[in-house]
């Protein structure tokens, strides 16, 4: 099953604290590898906490990531959130459209439910 979503990478305070604790430490790694999904989307896609999904961009960048339900009404359905880091960067294209800034928020992604990690 695949469905289109808009991905919004951003900051979280745990990610910020994790940078100071160390990028190879648990807090930072956990933050940047958890994809937040709106509770309504979790239910509709029958996703449980910790299930794996594959995200693919229009330029073919692909990642696999575990999901977690976003808090209450923080995220509207159709939007995904992840803390900035390795995974969000892998989904950015190399092109900056003459601005120096790759499109790093509001990225169209195709979400495929995997349940468990394939890699």
């Amino acid at each position: 099953m695949t469905e289109m979503f808009i991905l919004i990478p951003g900051r979280t305070s745990d990610q910020g604290c994790g940078i100071s604790e160390g990028k190879f430490q648990e807090k930072y790694q956990k933050q940047i590898t958890s994809l937040q999904v709106a509770p309504g989307d979790m239910e509709r896609l029958a996703l449980a906490e910790g299930d794996w999904v594959r995200l693919t961009t229009e330029f073919g960048q692909q990642v696999e990531v575990a999901v977690t339900a976003a808090k209450k009404d923080e995220l509207p359905e159709g939007l995904l959130f992840i803390a900035y880091g390795d995974i969000s960067s892998r989904l950015m294209g190399g092109d900056t459209h003459g601005s120096g800034m790759p499109t790093s928020k509001g990225i169209d992604v195709e979400l495929e439910v995997l349940r468990s990690e394939t890699a």
């Binding site: 990028k23 892998r90 950015m92 190399g94 092109d95 900056t96 601005s99 120096g100 790759p102």
Partner: peptide
């Protein structure tokens, strides 16, 4: 800009000061 000079493969050496492009840049960069 660095995202571009790296992603296009133009830069041939560099110095990264208090930043982490290996975590924050696009895969081609």
């Amino acid at each position: 800009t660095t995202s571009d000079t790296l992603a296009r493969g133009e830069a041939d050496c560099g110095m990264m000061i208090a930043c982490d492009p290996m975590a924050n840049f696009s895969q081609p960069a």
